[in-house]
């Protein structure tokens, strides 16, 4: 199980990398942590002429807070993100999703950008980004494009990234201090890709009024999706989790394949949304109490 022969490039700077990418186009693949690409290379499922290793471009490994968003460089490793105080404070949903991503050893190397670029429908980081309403910053030699995460993911392994572009950064809207977040997931084993996952963010204007609400679902459709929950805004949170979970289950069009039937995915959607909404609500209540 050895990869095909390829040319290996290790640009030190972003512009070098973009230059290479412009030159090689779709004959090149971008290698960051290699947690997904590595296995696919070894299995010879991915057979590039060139591999562009961006893991040493320091500009891609930053975390910063800019106005209303937290910007994470595409090369930031999952374990760095997991131990980042900024992320814990400003993007709690991501912080909650990260422990579900792979294992200690793979998080040490796997990157946020790599996971987003690969666009596995079950992956946690893309789900968190979609749920947050985050943005993918794409850069090519010709310029920059910023695409909302909800548009970025097109299908399983398919995104709007063009071959000459690379993901440079991800923008995560900062969480409101009184928001409650939750992430729930069902996987066959610990660290496996989710069969289904749900992410929820909620804010209460008053104890009985939902002001902000996001429900994201991963692993169920061929890309992570945010459910349209506008009809629940302004309502009282009382019975919301149960109703919302029914609603979410009815609004997804689940994949149906050997790894899980559509019926099972729908059933999990219901369970997970209910769990996520309930725990996000109770955190939101706590936060409100704390801030008052």
């Amino acid at each position: 199980m050895k990869p095909v022969a390829f040319d290996y490039y290790r640009p030190q700077t972003l512009s070098e990398a973009l230059e290479l990418l412009a030159d090689k186009g779709d004959e090149a693949v971008i290698l960051a942590g290699g947690m997904t690409l590595g296995p696919m290379l070894n299995l010879r499922i991915v057979r590039p002429r060139a591999v562009i290793d961006i893991s040493r471009i320091e500009a891609l490994q930053t975390i910063s807070v800019t106005g209303s968003v937290v910007v994470t460089g595409a090369g930031l490793t999952q374990s760095e993100a997991l131990s980042s105080e900024i992320i814990a404070r400003e993007v709690p949903l991501l912080a909650m999703a990260l422990p579900w991503v792979g294992h200690f050893q793979t998080r040490n190397r796997g990157t946020l950008g790599g996971s987003v670029a690969h666009a596995d429908p079950s992956a946690e980081i893309p789900l968190a980004l979609v749920a947050c309403g985050g943005t993918v910053v794409l850069q090519s030699r010709w310029g920059q494009r910023r695409i909302g995460a909800r548009q970025f993911f097109v299908g399983a392994l398919v995104t709007q990234r063009r071959p000459d572009e690379m993901i440079m950064a991800l923008e995560w809207p900062r969480s409101a201090p009184d928001a409650g977040h939750a992430f729930s997931e069902i996987a066959q084993r610990h660290g496996d890709f989710a069969i289904a996952a749900a992410a929820c963010t909620v804010r209460l204007a008053k104890p009985d009024r939902v002001e902000q609400l996001v429900v994201g679902i991963g692993g169920v459709e061929d890309r992570p999706v945010a459910i349209d929950v506008s009809s629940f805004l302004g309502q009282a949170p009382g019975e919301m989790a149960a109703k919302l979970s029914e609603y979410a289950a009815a609004s997804v069009s689940p994949m149906d394949d050997r790894s899980a039937s559509a019926a099972y995915r729908t059933a999990l959607t219901k369970v997970l949304v209910e769990r996520a909404v309930n725990s996000a609500l109770s955190i939101a209540r706590l936060q409100r109490g704390r801030l008052q």
Partner: peptide
């Protein structure tokens, strides 16, 4: 052998 989790979606795409 290695892509079961994704084949259905990819085919559909």
């Amino acid at each position: 052998a290695v892509g079961q989790r994704m084949l259905g979606s990819v085919m559909r795409y």
